[in-house]
């Protein structure tokens, strides 16, 4: 039995894709707010959008984070691990934003272990998936499907899921950010993955003949 090929908790190198990377100074005091924007706004937005599930809230949080960065530009210049720092303030801002609107989401938390019968069998037929991850993610439509499935995750699993499996942060960092123990992070991540698998299955399973 071969184990998971991709190492679960390695960062996925998303930062490398940032278009502004080449024009922004790596260190020193040359950072301008404009450069802060170019370098960080897309990542902050992307994380906030996935955590909060809609553009209006993501915009509020992105603006909040960017202004914090500009305000703390001196601290920011000296920060050794910018990416971690930025993740942290984005997560904090998103959580604070969500708390302010705590009455908005009353979604029932789905239990992925309900997808089994009382005797422990799969409640639905589990067919093989046809496409490989490479094919799947290259298509715009399927990317949208995956994003929709993420948005539909209960918040309690979504935060951990996004930080771990999309952003590629280590479980320990996620626990620190969200105030969760390591076992709690792992458990939420596993449940988030099971729910994601369940949501995506109808789209990716091979058609029955």
């Amino acid at each position: 039995m071969n184990a998971l090929e991709a190492k679960p908790m390695q960062p996925n190198g998303k930062a490398k894709e940032i278009a502004a990377k080449d024009i922004v100074p790596r260190s020193g005091a040359q950072w301008t707010p404009e450069q802060v924007f170019l370098e960080h706004a897309p990542r902050v937005y992307s994380l906030a959008r996935r955590m909060l599930g809609n553009d209006a809230d993501a915009e509020d949080v992105t603006q909040d984070v960017l202004l914090q960065v500009v305000r703390k530009l001196d601290t920011f210049r000296g920060e050794a691990n910018l990416s971690t720092w930025l993740h942290r303030i984005t997560v904090n801002a998103a959580l604070a934003h969500r708390r302010k609107r705590a009455n908005r989401e009353h979604r029932e938390v789905r239990d992925p272990f309900n997808h089994f019968t009382e005797h422990g069998y799969h409640a639905q037929s589990i067919r093989p998936w046809s496409a490989s991850p490479d094919n799947i993610v290259q298509s715009k439509e399927t990317t949208a499907l995956i994003e929709k499935a993420i948005t539909e995750l209960p918040e309690i699993y979504r935060d951990v899921y996004v930080l771990a499996d999309v952003e590629g942060l280590p479980n320990q960092d996620i626990g620190d950010m969200l105030g969760l123990s390591l076992p709690a992070v792992k458990s939420r991540l596993h449940r988030g993955r099971l729910l994601m698998r369940h949501s995506l299955a109808p789209h990716f399973e091979e058609a029955t003949l």
Binding site: N12, P128, I146, M196
Partner: peptide
């Protein structure tokens, strides 16, 4: 079914690691 379940769980994980950032 559990083989399919395990394989699709792995695909789910791999797939989400490859998601491009959302465009603003």
């Amino acid at each position: 079914p559990c083989i399919n379940f395990l394989e699709s769980y792995k695909v789910t994980v791999t797939m989400c690691r490859k998601l491009p950032p959302l465009e603003m």
